Computed example of a mutant assay.
Amino acid sequence: MTTTHLLYLHGFRSSPQSAKARQMAAHVAQHHPGVTFWCPQLPPSPKAAMELVAQGIAPWRGAAMAVIGSSLGGFYASWVAQHKGCPSVMLNPAVHPARDLARYIGEQTTWHDPAERFYFQPEYIDELRALDTAGQPPAAPEMAIIAKGDEVLDWREMVARYPQARLVVQEGGEHALANFSDYLPQVTEFLALA
């Protein structure tokens, strides 16, 4: 089955302006112009974020779509893949966001526009718990690209979370996965982009 629709989910405090989101969008536009690419700006509320995504992809057939997610977006990507039965690619995925983001409750700024602020509410932690698909067998093939040098998340936890995924574990690197473009051919092949 080929993928005709691709969803990209950015991470916490990030946006569709992230380097990886823009690289993926450009790659799809150049090499797979027939593929519908969508990278929405996700609201801070995990519940609201997944409602927005679910609404946007409602007409997409699970068998013809795929999802890529970075960091918190990787956590969300697992939820989307579980609900749509579609392949997923996680880039340095957050695997315990309810635990890790608890210390970020309060006012936050976005990476790409520090003037832009949002408030991370305490109830968002329960919303994250409600979206956790850990422990469920994957509904479709998974791939995880993980940098051992990630300064934000523990690569060992990421590897342990995705035991059935095709794992690409990079020596060194960093959370932003600055060399993401090196992996575009593998990602494209794995997702069988049309």
Rank of each mutant, 00 (worst) to 15 (best):
M24K: 10
V28E: 04
P44H: 03
H112A: 11
R166G: 01
L193N: 10
P122N: 05
A66L: 10
L153S: 01
K148L: 05
G73Q: 12
T110V: 14
Y119F: 14
N92S: 08
K47Q: 13
P114V: 05
A26D: 15
L128H: 03
Q30T: 13
G149D: 08
P33D: 10
I125N: 08
A58Q: 11
A25T: 07
Q17L: 13
L7W: 14
Y183R: 05
G56A: 13
Q41N: 11
L72Y: 11
Q164Y: 04
Q136M: 14
E157S: 13
G85A: 03
S88H: 06
G135Q: 11
A194K: 13
E189G: 10
A140Y: 08
D150M: 05
D113C: 10
P87F: 09
R129F: 05
A19D: 08
H112L: 09
A26I: 02
A25F: 01
P137L: 03
V89F: 09
P46C: 02
M158Q: 15
Y124V: 14
Q121G: 04
A194E: 15
A19T: 06
H83F: 08
A176D: 06
G106M: 07
A81C: 13
L153G: 00
S181D: 15
H83M: 07
T3R: 12
T110M: 15
W155T: 00
L153D: 01
T188I: 09
F190Q: 14
T3L: 11
A63M: 02
A160V: 05
I145M: 04
I146M: 04
F118T: 08
S45F: 01
H5P: 05
A49I: 00
E151M: 00
V152E: 11
A160E: 09
L153F: 13
P59A: 02
Y162C: 02
H31A: 12
Y119H: 15
I146T: 02
P141S: 11
A176C: 03
E127T: 10
T109R: 11
Q17E: 15
G11L: 03
F120D: 06
R156K: 13
Y183A: 00
L128G: 04
D182C: 07
T4D: 15
P93C: 08
P87C: 09
V67S: 00
K84S: 09
A140L: 10
A77N: 05
V89Q: 04
V95F: 06
V53W: 03
H27T: 02
F120S: 12
H112M: 12
A130M: 06
T4K: 13
Q82G: 05
R103I: 06
L72K: 08
S45G: 04
